[in-house]
Structures are given as C-alpha cells and as structure tokens.
C-alpha cells in the first residue's frame, strides 16, 4: 500500500497517551493497522510513556497489596476487558471490523443525499465516527466543521482542494478548512470519518436534514 498522507505527531501522541476521544482513536487504530510507518511512530510515543512511568513519583502501596494481587491472579478475574483482536473483514481492518460488526455488508447504510450513504458507528459522545460511501465521481455536500475532522480512505479515492487521498491515506482537517471532497472516477469511495463536532453543511436543505441524519 502506497500511503502518502499520515497521522500527525500531535494525534499519535494523544492516542499513545490514551487521551484521544474514542471516535478519533478508531481512525488512528485503523490507519496504524494499514501503515507500518505510523505504527513505528506510535510505538516510539508509547516508549515515551514508558519513560514517563519509569520516572513517575512512587506512591506506597497498601501493606497487603502484593498478597491481594496474588489472590486476584489465582481467582482468574479478568479486569482487562479488551476484546480479543478482531480479524480484518473485507476492506475493514480489524479495529474497524470490531466496531462495524463485520465488513461493509453488515452495516445499515442510510442515504444522506447526492447518492452518498453513511453508517454511524457507536462511540463515546465527545466525537462521532461514521463510514461514508461516495459513488465514483460524486461529491460529498460542501461542508465546514467546527472542530477536528479525520478522514481515512478504505477503498477508492477522493480529491479535495488540498490533495488526492487513496486507500490508507488520512486527511486531517480543522475548522479553518472548508472543503468539497469529490470521489475520483472509477471505484466508489468508502471512508471512515471522525469529527468532534457535528458537520455543518453550507446548503440550506442539508442543514435542515442534519438532526435527522446525525451528520
């Protein structure tokens, strides 16, 4: 995979520190599953976390804490509820397949106008994640956004005022960017997008439709 648009240091560091809202974390985990370069950078940010922990001020443990921990080990109680890693499903890498409950066919897609379809994924409230299916050659309605927006291409490609984005590429846009992504001709474009504020469309009708479609 020839990836040209990568994650920024800010975002990889926040993810490694465990401080990124879940929806953005999903974009990061999915991109890292496709991109060895960002995986290596993520591991180096985790190493910084290890160095911070190693240098952290100690706070004395309770006096029976070792015995209590051994009892915990023997009881077999699991507190690390992280689900077993999910395998990739079609064009969805493992972490995305876990949220989607499988590949693209397992989702409920809804029309949002212009032939574009979307499927909202579950995540914490601070930010929202959704999949977009854009027919080849079609445009996503013109939109600005009030916060950060991350868009990861899974299939096909899109182009906007900034550049062209193909499979594995991630676009990071802030509220200063008003952009009109258009799917490249050929293959339909499927991407994973996360925003920390609802999108605002510039045309009147889509704006009225927003509360219904949770865009």
């Amino acid at each position: 995979m020839n990836i040209r648009h990568h994650l920024s240091d800010d975002i990889l560091m926040a993810y490694s520190a465990g401080e990124l809202p879940e929806a953005f974390g999903l974009v990061v985990a999915t991109h890292v599953s496709m991109c060895d370069e960002c995986r290596a950078r993520m591991e180096s940010f985790e190493a910084v976390g290890g160095a911070v922990l190693a240098g952290a001020d100690s706070v004395a443990m309770g006096k029976d804490s070792l015995a209590a921990t051994m009892a915990l080990i023997k009881s077999g109680t699991q507190h690390d509820k992280a689900p077993a890693p999910t395998r990739r499903a079609g064009i969805f890498p493992g972490p995305l397949a876990a949220y989607a409950g499988g590949g693209p066919e397992s989702l409920k897609w809804r029309r949002v106008g212009g032939g574009v379809r979307q499927a909202i994924l579950p995540s914490s409230e601070e930010a929202s994640a959704r999949l977009l299916h854009i027919p080849a050659g079609a445009a996503v309605p013109d939109h600005g956004h009030r916060g950060l927006e991350m868009t990861l291409v899974l299939q096909g490609a899109f182009r906007d005022e900034a550049a062209q984005f193909g499979p594995g590429d991630v676009e990071i846009a802030t509220d200063a960017d008003e952009h009109t992504p258009v799917a490249e001709p050929g293959e339909d474009c499927i991407c994973l997008a996360a925003t920390d504020a609802p999108l605002r469309f510039n045309a009147l009708l889509p704006r009225l439709a927003q509360p219904f479609f949770r865009i």
């Binding site: 520190a17 465990g18 809202p21 879940e22 974390g25 999903l26 990061v28 985990a29 999915t30 890292v32 599953s33 995986r39 993520m42 985790e46 190493a47 976390g49 290890g50 160095a51 911070v52 922990l53 190693a54 507190h79 690390d80 509820k81 992280a82 890693p85 395998r87 990739r88 890498p93 493992g94 972490p95 876990a98 949220y99 995540s123 914490s124």
Partner: peptide, 25 residues
Amino acid sequence: ATWIFTIARNRRIDALRRQRRPEPE
C-alpha cells in the same frame, strides 16, 4: 516499563474515562 505503561493506560481509559479503546491489529 513501556509494556506496563500500556496496560496502566488502558486500565485508566476503562476505569476512569469509561470508554473503549480501539486497538490496532
């Protein structure tokens, strides 16, 4: 230390922030 950091970080997300953490493959 790094490995323990990642376990502690994940526990913090789960126990303090009550969120899931998407993990890479």
